[in-house]
């Protein structure tokens, strides 16, 4: 039982990270039907910029909460800017060409950004300052560290904020209508390009937050850390029904749980396999995902 509880806590923590990354995929896919391969790189870049600012602030003698919130905000802003730049350069000119060219362009951007990170920051792991979030609650043998608490509560906050943004504000309405019909949105006076940029920025900011969380949780970041979580988060987005924001959150938590429980109860080596097996099973039996509506799947 205690083991189960411990795994549950770990699963929710990991699931939070996947959910945050998956949101970016799902929002971008929803609005321009693109698997944004560079999204994993936004996540990695967020982790790096986070550690850069965190170490800088720490060395300047700032208190812990300033370090955490400052680096978080700066990294999110940085990734939002990065995503807008990538979108303007690599995706916007291809708005009207075939989807395969945009996909390859995204792939190119992903490789480019990954190697850019490697060239500027080096091939080796970069360690996060550990002194900020030590300790935790202990209940019997179950351990809930402050770090996990931080990750889960921050995720909860971001998810609520995103929901308010998408479903209650004008920008959210513009995003949803642009996702459904770009021409018609323009005809009612929505600037589609700006809306798409905003979507990219929000998605990347969430990924940056996830990057910092992963960095804090595992203690270090690496230039190529974006790929595997990126793929799994995309799997989570598809699992939840791509284009659906609530679905991406649920999908992220499911993938995180599956991974942790499979590693804990079945086999540590094959933990990554289970995420994909679940994905394929869900797609086979319910191709539109858990929350998916009738997606228009005729376009290739």
């Amino acid at each position: 039982m205690e083991y189960f509880l411990q795994q549950l806590i770990n699963g929710i923590t990991l699931g939070s990270v996947y959910a945050l990354i998956a949101l970016g995929y799902t929002m971008v896919y929803g609005i321009i039907q693109l698997i944004n391969f560079a999204h994993g790189e936004f996540f990695a870049a967020g982790g790096y910029v986070g550690v850069i600012f965190m170490s800088y602030l720490l060395s300047q003698g700032a208190p812990a909460w300033v370090c955490l919130s400052g680096s978080l905000i700066l990294a999110m802003a940085y990734c939002a800017m990065l995503a807008v730049a990538v979108e303007k350069v690599a995706y916007k000119p291809l708005r009207n060409s075939s989807r395969l060219s945009v996909l390859l362009s995204a792939l190119g951007m992903s490789i480019f950004l990954q190697n850019g990170l490697m060239l500027t920051q080096g091939v080796y792991d970069k360690a996060y300052p550990t002194e900020l979030t030590q300790g935790g609650f202990e209940m019997g043998n179950v351990m809930l560290s402050y770090m996990q608490l931080f990750i889960v509560s921050l995720t909860a906050f971001l998810l609520v904020a995103l929901n308010v943004l998408v479903f209650k504000t004008r920008i959210g309405k513009a995003m949803r209508s642009t996702a459904q019909d770009k021409v018609m949105s323009a005809l009612v006076g929505i600037n589609a390009n700006r809306t798409i940029s905003i979507t990219f920025a929000i998605g990347a900011a969430l990924a940056a937050a996830a990057g910092i969380m992963v960095g804090l949780y595992y203690g270090s970041v690496r230039y190529d850390m974006g790929f595997v979580p990126g793929i799994k988060a995309f799997a989570a987005a598809v699992l939840g029904g791509i284009g659906n924001i609530t679905g991406a959150m649920i999908g992220g938590f499911i993938i995180g749980m599956v991974e942790i429980f499979a590693a804990g109860y079945i086999s540590g080596e094959y933990k990554d396999v289970f995420a994909f097996v679940i994905l394929i099973a869900v797609l086979y039996f319910r191709p539109s995902g858990i929350m998916g509506e009738n997606v228009d799947d005729t376009r290739v």
């Binding site: 350069v89 690599a90 291809l94 060409s97 060219s101 945009v102 390859l104 362009s105 792939l107 190119g108 951007m109 992903s110 490789i111 480019f112 950004l113 990954q114 190697n115 850019g116 060239l119």
Partner: peptide
């Protein structure tokens, strides 16, 4: 780095 950049440029 160049490979990725060229891929995007090509597209």
């Amino acid at each position: 780095l160049v490979f990725g950049g060229v891929m995007t440029l090509m597209m």
